[in-house]
Design a protein around this nucleic acid. Structure first.
Lengths: 238, 238
DNA sequence: CATTCACTCGTACGCCGTACGATAGAGTCT
DNA sequence: AGACTCTATCGTACGGCGTACGAGTGAATG
């Protein structure tokens, strides 16, 4: 699944040089393009949820027939891949000249990552079964570079990257499991309160009710970065 | 989605006391029951993957009509919930009398958690959108209890639990994104090698090719536990 | 015997992803 | 000009899905 042979259905549409009449599309009736498809898919996912994206609906929105999409895209799976990656693009922080501390850099990127995914809740549930897109890899690369420059030993690098990565992933995915919609937020809270009763320690700490997600995220990140930070006497891993 | 009103379709079947003829079912033709449904669903998921589970197939396997399932189960979603939770049961370690160190205890539970999910790869991709079942909550409770007894301050407890939790979640989910099947494992490796070329730091560290997942998991866990461990002078969170 | 339950299942509806092949227009070559 | 190719669109149809609905069955109960 993760690896696709470049299938016959998808030669790239090269824009034939000649744009339509004027320099800009007026409105709704532009021609199909990968960009428009992906943008509308994201929109659909945002508003209708993960089951709301169907090829027919997507095509309708674009004023096209369902099968027209398949000239630009191999399958619905591909639409998911593209939508996911498109939502995870990272704009570097404004780089105001002053060199950032590596730690701030890492935190910024990871908090932004988390924010991106929370802005599009479907992305968290998609991630586990999708391939790595360029934006995802770009973030990994950046993370690796930052840590490496900060002096993290090569031998520790991969473990460090994956630790941070996993943490962010898990935090986002977990967060997404709670209070998905606002409709039943109250009901969910009640349910969690009921559930808690059978789990005394959890209840006492209000684990399921505490909703300072952002703070918890940041604190865990600090735990990890403390562990990863270079030039500590790391002899006994136990 | 996460919260269901207990819908009308699912009164619990109470076994009417009188078992069939003998004490044990002979073979294939037992009657439907929640246990059999869930067990077969897990089997189907294990062998056919997440798309391989359909209500019709599941019913066939059980020698029943598709709609018969719906007397025991509200919907296909419920089957997913049940299958997921059933796979995540935790058997406490043999408790050989000697008191375990809390750290060993936590590590055991979390490594077991990860192992469970890797044994059933579909579980990782299901987790993000499913409700909390009793086995999942049981593990959280145990984690909370262990940390609390180990002396983690109440104020740090939730952050600690969620950190560990998120980490395990993310590690499992990420792991699942790679080399899903053995069919295309070679192809996947090649693809990753190609990809790496555009991401120099990643390539240098062989991030995507390194396959010591278990080791990386353990090392990250140690990072975190170092950060969480009680009685450290934790004044400056920065 | 009548009624109620616990349980099973056949049929049917509306939706899905997409294989296939028929277009239509624009560009290119002779 | 005519023939041909390439890009792009789309209508139809197929097989499969989840599940609403309601009819059926056999045992327990009154």
């Amino acid at each position: 699944m993760a690896v696709k042979r470049s299938s016959p259905g998808s030669r790239k549409p090269r824009r034939t040089g000649v744009s339509p009449k004027s320099g800009q599309e007026p409105a709704g009736e532009a021609s199909l393009s990968l960009e428009r498809i992906v943008a509308n898919a994201v929109d659909l996912l945002d508003t209708q949820g993960i089951d709301g994206l169907t090829m027919r609906r997507l095509a309708d929105r674009l004023g096209a027939g369902a099968m027209s999409l398949y000239w630009h895209v191999d399958s619905k799976e591909a639409v998911f891949d593209l939508a996911l990656d498109s939502v995870l693009a990272y704009r570097e922080p404004a780089q105001t000249g002053k060199a950032q501390h590596w730690r701030a850099d890492v935190i910024h990127m990871l908090e932004d990552w988390r924010a991106c995914m929370l802005r599009h809740p479907w992305s968290a549930s998609l991630l586990p079964r999708r391939a790595l897109g360029p934006n995802i890899l770009g973030r990994l690369e950046r993370l690796a570079r930052t840590l490496s420059r900060a002096g993290v030993a090569d031998a520790d690098l991969n473990a460090g990257i994956w630790s941070l990565w996993n943490y962010v992933m898990g935090a986002t995915v977990t967060r997404g499991s709670f209070d998905r919609s606002d409709d039943d937020r109250a009901a969910a809270q009640q349910r969690l309160r009921d559930l808690s009763q059978h789990y005394p320690t959890i209840e006492r700490s209000r684990l399921l009710l505490d909703d300072d997600w952002d703070g918890a995220f940041r604190r865990g990140l600090d735990f990890l970065l403390d562990g990863i930070a270079p030039r500590r006497s790391k002899a006994q891993p136990r």
